[in-house]
Design a binder for these strands. Structure first.
Lengths: 231, 231
DNA sequence: CGTGAGGTTGATCGCTTTCAACGGAGGTGG
DNA sequence: CCACCTCCGTTGAAAGCGATCAACCTCACG
């Protein structure tokens, strides 16, 4: 099922803002291997650790009382998970694909950051980047049509896989339609229908349900902003 | 129109995580007074300054190409605006009420943070708190019904004005229905209708359009989570 | 008293949801 | 090896919620 996982793993090299773990005693770091669908932690768990994704894709989400779910982010290699203010996690987290993940005690990370301003700065840079990403997602959740949401989502993934000048890219989606729907604030049926519309419009192709081919990235970009005219 | 502005201003004292500006030369700080509706900065402006709200309320928002707007946050005294990664602002910002705002050169702030880890830590704490607030807002934008959104929004404001044990509170809304709509991902008409529903349900009262009385905060909390049963 | 901005309410439309049926891929056991 | 089952995805039909269009109201201000 994850035949193209190596593609995902290669992304690690693209992230240049890796944390300088050399500042932290090796005995305090643990690299762990996870199977698909294993949880990292749950909402309200004690926030004892911060996790750095080395390989694989992780899904962070929050559950409302009545079963509704909002996916907060899909985390790729280089991303940091669980850097929270306060002593408890405010969301759950589980891996979508087989993954390798580094685990650092949060107290150790913050203590080291206090002694080494450079690490503190990296953490601050990471946090402000996260804020910018979330602001992008706000406009998407609050103000876009279903097709625009899905087009924007696919563009975001495509940009992780794209080389300069490419106009066509192929990649695997590590998440299900439900995951995507809960990320975009839609139902899985609407995600499926939107994908079909994008296919009909010639922007993408779907040889298998989890394989996406970007056929015309410019059209996809158009559809991500003003789909009303197109349908 | 802003007769109760003093109520808002008092909130400054409630925020305990103020930045230790004493570390920054007084000559580099400027406290400025703004009139209602004045902009602080615009999207793509050079991010030369970071702003701390001292008095008043500020609205941060992003405009899509076709005029759609997403309000990212309403900033109250104690909040920090414009702490971005990169050299440009990614959103616009304007004051909603007469305001007093401290302006610090971003380079100076970051340089000082490098030398004084304590300041860096405060900034990191601020950023992670922001992340948590935005995660809350995600679930609201993506997964709540209109009435739930408005109820949640009013609860959030009410919590800024509430004293312990209060079951009824009165406060002024510094923003218009359009601002609220653009914050919640709704139209102004839907916001208005939802307010009326909350009034009919006995959760709130609206003596004037910008004056909100929380009549039954527990009912309001119920309506913020599972309104479907109530209507 | 006229004017304009902001707010409320009504009627209708349309997009997304909901409910439901079907199909394909992968895994298991006879 | 094949029947069967389950999970995931797609598609169709109908219903519902919020958007849109429009009228009216209130209040502040000149």
């Amino acid at each position: 099922m994850y035949a193209h996982q190596s593609e995902v793993i290669q992304m690690a090299e693209l992230h240049s803002n890796n944390i300088p773990w050399t500042e932290i005693p090796a005995t305090k770091q643990q690299v762990q291997v996870y199977e698909a669908h294993e949880p990292l932690f749950c909402e309200w768990d004690d926030a004892g650790f911060v996790y750095e994704v080395l390989e694989g894709v992780v899904c962070c989400y929050r559950l409302c009382g009545d079963g509704r779910r909002q996916v907060l982010s899909f985390c790729y290699p280089g991303d940091l998970i669980g850097l929270v203010q306060g002593d408890f996690h405010r969301y759950s987290s589980e891996v979508l694909t087989p993954a390798r993940i580094r685990r650092i005690p949060r107290s150790m990370l913050l203590k080291t950051a206090k002694e080494r301003p450079e690490l503190g700065q990296k953490l601050l840079r990471f946090a402000t980047s996260e804020l910018a990403v979330m602001q992008d997602h706000f406009a998407l959740l609050g103000r876009k049509m279903a097709v625009e949401k899905v087009a924007s989502f696919l563009l975001g993934i495509a940009n992780r896989h794209i080389s300069e000048g490419d106009t066509t890219v192929t990649f695997q989606l590590p998440m299900t339609r439900v995951d995507i729907a809960d990320y975009l604030g839609l139902t899985l049926e609407t995600v499926s229908r939107s994908m079909t519309k994008l296919k009909i419009a010639g922007a993408i192709d779907l040889p298998q349900s989890s394989t996406v081919v970007i056929r015309d990235i410019f059209r996809l970009e158009d559809l991500a902003e003003a789909s009303d005219k197109a349908f």
